[in-house]
C-alpha cells in the first residue's frame, strides 16, 4: 500500500472535518449539562432523560419508525419485481421507458416529487396522514432499492434458476428457493437503504402529511425554529446513531456476501 504524505493527510483531514465536524459538535453538545447550547457546562446525560419525557417527540419518532418500516418493505418488494423484470425479461416493449421512469426519482428534486404527490393526493381526495407519507416514501425509495437489487441480479448466473427448474421446481419455487436466498443480502441492503432514506426525509413528508401525522424530522425542524435546545441535540444524536448502525450493517452484509461468494 502507498504511504500518505503530509499533504495527503492534511487534505484527508480537511475533507473529513468538513463532512463530520458539524455532527461531532452536535453530538458533543448533546451531552452538555448547560441549558445554553453554545456554553459548555460539563458532561451530563440529562437531555436524554428529559427526551424520554417529551411525548410529542417520542410519538413522532414512533411514527417515523412505522412509516420507514412499512414504506421500506413495500418499496423493496416493488424494487425486487422491477429489477427482475428489467434484468430477466431482456428487451421487452417499453423497457427503456420503464427503466427511465424507475430511475427518474433519483434525480428529481424532492420538492417537485413532494409537490406532485401532494397534488395527486388532493385530487384523489385522500386524507393526508400516515398512509400518504408512506406511499410518498415508497415512491422516493423504490428507485434506490431497485438500483441496489438490479446490480446484484445482473451478476446472477441465470443457469442456477434453470437448474432448479430442471430438477423439478416450478418457476415460482425456483425463484423462492434459489434466486431469492442468493439475492437476500442485496435485498436486505436495499431494505435498509430505503428505511434510512424514509427515516431522514423532511421535504416529501412535509408536503404529503396531514395534521395527525408528524414525523421525527418534521418535529425536530419545527422545534429548531423555536430555538435549538440540547434536547434536540440529543434526539438528533440518537437519529444519527440509528442511521449509522443501519448503514454500517447494510454495507457489512454486502461485503460479507462479496467475500463468501466463490
Amino acid at each position: 500500500m502507498r504511504r500518505f504524505g503530509p499533504l495527503h493527510m492534511t487534505a484527508l483531514a480537511a475533507g473529513l472535518a468538513f463532512l463530520y465536524l458539524p455532527m461531532l459538535i452536535l453530538i458533543a453538545y448533546s451531552f452538555n449539562a448547560s441549558r445554553l447550547v453554545t456554553v459548555w457546562g460539563g458532561f451530563s446525560t440529562r437531555w436524554y432523560a428529559s427526551l424520554l419525557q417529551n411525548q410529542p417527540l417520542l410519538d413522532a419518532a414512533w411514527l417515523s419508525l412505522q412509516v420507514a418500516f412499512v414504506s421500506a418493505t413495500i418499496a423493496t418488494i416493488l424494487a425486487l419485481l422491477a429489477a427482475v423484470a428489467l434484468v430477466r425479461y431482456g428487451r421487452f416493449r417499453g423497457r427503456t421507458l420503464f427503466s427511465g421512469m424507475i430511475g427518474a426519482p433519483l434525480i428529481m428534486p424532492e420538492v417537485v416529487t413532494g409537490l406532485s404527490l401532494l397534488l395527486l393526493f388532493v385530487a384523489l381526495g385522500l386524507d393526508r396522514g400516515f398512509w400518504t407519507v408512506t406511499i410518498a416514501h415508497v415512491t422516493l425509495t423504490m428507485c434506490f432499492a431497485t438500483v441496489v437489487i438490479q446490480s446484484r441480479l445482473v451478476a446472477f448466473d441465470a443457469s442456477l434458476e434453470e437448474a432448479a427448474q430442471d430438477l423439478g421446481a416450478p418457476p415460482w419455487k425456483a425463484f423462492l428457493t434459489v434466486t431469492l436466498p442468493i439475492l437476500a443480502p442485496a435485498v436486505a441492503a436495499a431494505w435498509m437503504l430505503a428505511f434510512t432514506l424514509s427515516l431522514d426525509d423532511l421535504v416529501i413528508a412535509s408536503f404529503t402529511t396531514g395534521p395527525s401525522a408528524t414525523t421525527l424530522p418534521m418535529r425536530l425542524y419545527s422545534a429548531v425554529r423555536l430555538g435549538v435546545t440540547p434536547e434536540i441535540n440529543a434526539a438528533s444524536t440518537i437519529l444519527i446513531a440509528f442511521v449509522a448502525i443501519v448503514v454500517v450493517s447494510a454495507s457489512l452484509v454486502v461485503k460479507r456476501e462479496l467475500v463468501t461468494r466463490p
Binding site: D166, L167, P170, A174
Partner: peptide, 18 residues
C-alpha cells in the same frame, strides 16, 4: 415445461446452488 420433463441436465457452469 422443464420442471415436468423426465430429463436432467448437467450444466456447463455446473450451476451448483452456492
Amino acid at each position: 415445461p422443464p420442471h415436468r420433463r423426465p430429463t436432467n441436465m448437467m450444466f456447463q457452469s455446473y450451476a451448483l446452488f452456492p
